[in-house]
């Protein structure tokens, strides 16, 4: 069960896994995620379902190495299995024909944006994609996104590829061009989503963000993923993960994401030491 049928390194420190999960593949909709646990001593982490193949019965997840669990995942290969994969969780994206939609994906956050953007395109929207990253070899899914986007822009912080600057620079240019934009989607680091939303609020454009809170069960049972949206407490796992970006308290999100910083480092260092010994 949950066997990895394909593993591909798609950028520096970013792997794509295609996993056998026929029931999830059949049910999932854009915007939903799975929770995985690699082995008996593993933790439960949420990962967006980037793609699914109903016929093959597989789902695709895209994972950047950021800590122990993702590092460990990166050591797995085609043929290996993941102990637990549960989903599809979360509310699917509300997809309809809005008109013109801009999808902004930052770093590995573009893996979250990607299925939603595709859903928007399939629903008949004019789709503009912006993919941003720190540097060229962190850009993911460029060709795949290009295949269905009406316009595609790349930005890198260091200018090694595409436009030099942040996704917000590109976004501003489009918004200033006078084009009528009906909806913006944003997914990436909390700080990026915050700045995208500050900008789109100014322009009065509805913006949906997908939040990457810490989760345990993913079914609304524990409340660790709670976020403040419009001053109200919401659970990202069952009420989200997508919310009205203009209403989200990003500072709180950032602080809550940092809850286990020290423990995460400890677990990572311990894992690296162990793998080095081998």
């Amino acid at each position: 069960m949950n066997q990895i049928v394909q593993k591909k390194r798609i950028a520096e420190g970013i792997n794509l896994f295609e996993i056998e999960a026929p029931l999830i593949a059949k049910k999932r909709k854009p915007g939903q995620f799975v929770i995985i646990r690699i082995d008996e001593t593993g933790e439960r982490i949420p990962l967006t379902i980037a793609n699914a193949d109903k016929e093959k019965g597989t789902i695709t997840i895209i994972v950047q190495v950021v800590g122990k669990t993702t590092e460990h995942l990166g050591t797995l290969n085609s043929g290996d299995s993941i102990l637990d994969v549960v989903g599809p969780l979360g509310q699917p994206t509300h997809i309809e024909r809005f008109g013109t939609v801009i999808a902004v994906g930052g770093g590995v956050g573009h893996a979250v944006c990607y299925p939603i953007a595709r859903g928007m395109k399939d629903a008949g929207n004019y789709l503009i994609s912006i993919i941003g990253a720190r540097t060229k070899n962190l850009i993911i899914l460029e060709n795949e996104t290009n295949a269905f986007s009406d316009e595609l822009y790349i930005t890198t912080d260091d200018g090694s590829y595409g436009r030099k600057g942040f996704v917000t620079d590109q976004l501003k240019e489009i918004l200033d061009s006078g084009k009528k934009v009906d909806l913006v989607l944003a997914s990436g680091p909390a700080i990026m989503m915050k700045f995208v939303c500050l900008m789109t609020k100014e322009y009065g454009i509805k913006t949906i963000v997908s939040l990457n809170s810490i989760m345990v069960d993913g079914t609304g049972m524990c409340g660790v993923c709670r976020v403040e949206v419009g001053g109200k407490t919401k659970f990202a796992c069952v009420d989200g993960p997508e919310f009205d970006g203009h209403e989200v308290n990003y500072d709180l999100l950032l602080k809550r994401l940092a809850t286990y910083k020290e423990e995460e480092k400890l677990a990572y260092d311990k894992f690296m030491l162990k793998t080095k010994d081998k």
Binding site: T41, G42, E43, R44, K68, T69, V216, D217, M221, C222, T259, Y260, E263, E264, L266, A267, K270
Partner: peptide
Amino acid sequence: TRSNLMKAYLFPEYDTPLK
């Protein structure tokens, strides 16, 4: 849940922390 189901009391032997 962190402590019982995820065995946070055995961190870092188990990955789930509880502060």
